[in-house]
Design a protein around this nucleic acid. Structure first.
Length: 528
RNA sequence: GCGCCCGUGGCUCAACUGGAUAGAGUAACGGACUUCGAAUCCGUUGGUUACAGGUUCGAAUCCUGUCGGGCGCACCA
């Protein structure tokens, strides 16, 4: 909708136009402060400029009314235009809210180490990333969802050792000395049992097999992670293995040093990231020749950029923010445009249950598993909760609040609006053909407002994706549901003269809610 | 100490990225069912946008400083 208005305005005004949706509907459907900007250049009173613009546009069929108020230019859309758009939406439900962007984007998210199940912080990144993915695709972009698997380095060996210890302790019932660093948790108990079933109990005493067991365990953990993610409707297109990247190491190193990006001091290779905005240089190869974690990231990001995307989006936990400068520095040295790397951070999550800190009771300690939360409140509530908060602010929420079945629980409230529409459609004797053949004109201001709001989905989705702020969509859906509930309360539908018209209006609302929820990875309910 | 993020009604969050009177939900209180789902709706109370300056037609938003909070500051991933 907004696109159409904008393109009409752009054909007459040669400058960037900010078109906004006024808070107060009496100012129209759309408004622009363009006259203020023009006033500076033309050295004329903005009120006068606005008045001139009114005359330019008031004859357009798209508008019922164009007004100049205090320098703002306010547009009210015509009912013909609104009805035409509504009909189009209902006839093309799969295209509703879609955009025409077409960038190639790589979206990397979650990328949790394959050493244990996902915790609640990962879940936030997963939901945020997957929601961005859905929004971006709806807007028209071509996006690849990728998971970077850190399967090289110490932590895999540590996983192997931890599994062996677990087996010794719980299956062989031996006394074991635990080292300072090792993994623990219920998942290891399960894994040890499977390992015993697969390889036999001897495996826990066979030093030779430690490496093999570690790799096996890593694969098992990845399977667990994938199935955990699947439980909240998060899926990936590609998995990139860190271990597999090192074939490319020599080539990338050559490129780095050729551009003066490296330096060897005390037998270690340093990335001279301080030359590119980082606070200091970073070791990428240790004295003994083993690469550091950063090395893998450098090869990986180089590979990403050589795959030639328009934009690479990374979603990282906020505790990694110190990494941004060094990764970008390496990209610069490798001759890439680091501004194409868009790093979004997700902040910490803390959970309450009925006002008390929610922690896992098991021996694994303090970290809350994603599974545990999904079990408590379900995927829909979890996804909605995370999507509805700005990702870069710390978040605390109470599980009990998300189990409520009233308007205090937004996902419930929105589903209820959708379900009410289906109830009323089922109750009505109207045939779909009759409903579609009617028009939504002449229903009054409440109906016009509801219809207009329902048809704003595309604008909201584009805005949410471009600003990387997915909570704009959840806010929109809450507001739309509220407007609908109000309308429903105030207006009787069945048996009235305007039954078909109103049902057509409701169909648009339902379409918008259903589409919006699906972009959040949630299936709209048709009955509660 | 240095760097990044943040500070908006009692609480959880918005505010179209510099625009019109800072909005929702929750909590508290008071109303609306012989009516398509009251699982809903309506109303009242609650704000010097942490504080002090600055930039301009215009600031919660941008700049500077102060205070307060979170996260980093590995040859771990």
């Amino acid at each position: 909708m907004k696109q159409r208005v904008l393109s009409l305005l752009s054909s007459s005004i040669e400058r960037e136009i900010v078109l906004e949706k006024p808070r107060d509907r009496s100012f129209g459907h759309f408004a622009t402060p363009i006259a203020f900007a023009m006033a500076k250049e033309l050295k004329k009173n903005p009120m006068i400029i606005a008045q001139e613009l009114v005359e330019m546009f008031s004859k357009e069929e798209m508008f019922a009314n164009v007004e100049a108020v205090k320098g703002y230019l306010n547009f009210k859309l015509s009912e013909d235009f609104l009805d035409e758009y509504a009909t189009w939406a209902l006839e093309h439900p799969d295209d509703f809210g879609k955009g025409e962007s077409s960038s190639n984007i790589l979206l990397e998210f979650v990328s949790a180490n394959p050493t244990g199940p996902l915790h609640i912080g990962h879940a936030r990144g997963a939901v945020y990333g997957d929601t961005l993915l859905r929004l971006g695709r709806h807007v028209g972009h071509n996006i690849t969802a990728e998971y970077y698997v850190n399967d090289a380095g110490n932590q895999i060996a540590l996983l192997g050792t931890s599994l062996i210890l677990e087996g010794k302790a719980n299956i062989l019932n031996e006394k074991v000395e635990y080292p300072e660093n090792y993994y623990r948790g219920e998942y290891l108990t399960k894994l040890a049992q499977i390992a015993a079933d697969t390889y036999g109990n001897d495996v826990f005493n066979d030093e030779e097999k430690i490496k093999e067991v570690a790799l096996w365990a890593k694969d098992e953990v990845i399977k667990m992670i994938i199935s955990d993610l699947d439980a909240i409707n998060v899926n990936f297109d590609t998995f990139v293995s860190e271990a597999g990247l090192y074939d490319d190491w020599d080539r990338v190193m050559d490129k780095l040093s050729a551009s003066g990006g490296t330096e060897i001091i005390d037998g270690k290779t340093w990335l001279k990231s301080s030359l590119k905005g980082d606070e200091k240089d970073r070791v990428i190869v240790r004295e003994d020749g083993r690469p550091t974690y950063l090395a893998g990231d450098i090869i990986y990001h180089n590979q990403k950029f050589e795959r030639d995307y328009d934009t690479c989006i990374n979603i990282w936990g906020a505790d990694h923010h110190g990494y941004m400068a060094r990764v970008k520095a390496s990209l610069e040295f490798l001759g890439h445009d680091s501004s194409k790397l868009d790093i979004q951070l997700t902040q910490m999550v803390s959970l309450l249950k009925d006002g008390q800190p929610f922690k896992m009771s098991k021996r694994a300690g303090t970290v809350v598993g994603m599974n545990d939360v999904v079990e408590e409140i379900g995927s829909d509530a979890l996804r909605f909760m995370f999507a509805s908060k700005k990702s870069d602010t710390a978040l605390e929420f109470d599980l009990v609040d998300l189990q409520k079945t009233d308007s205090s629980n937004p996902i419930f409230y929105i589903n209820y609006a959708h379900a009410r529409i289906h109830t009323i459609l089922n109750k009505s004797e109207m045939k779909m053909g009759t409903i579609m053949a009617s028009n939504v004109k002449g229903l009054g201001e409440d109906a016009d407002n509801l219809l207009f709001e329902a048809m704003l989905l595309n604008e909201v989705v584009e805005d949410a994706f471009n600003s990387r702020q997915v909570q704009k969509l959840t806010d929109y859906l809450k507001s739309l549901a509220s407007t609908y509930h109000k309308f429903y309360y105030d207006h009787k539908v069945i048996g009235t003269q305007n039954e078909a018209k109103m049902l057509k209006l409701f169909l648009v609302v339902a379409l918008s809610i259903k589409t919006g929820l699906s972009l959040l990875g949630i299936t709209a309910k048709e009955s509660m």
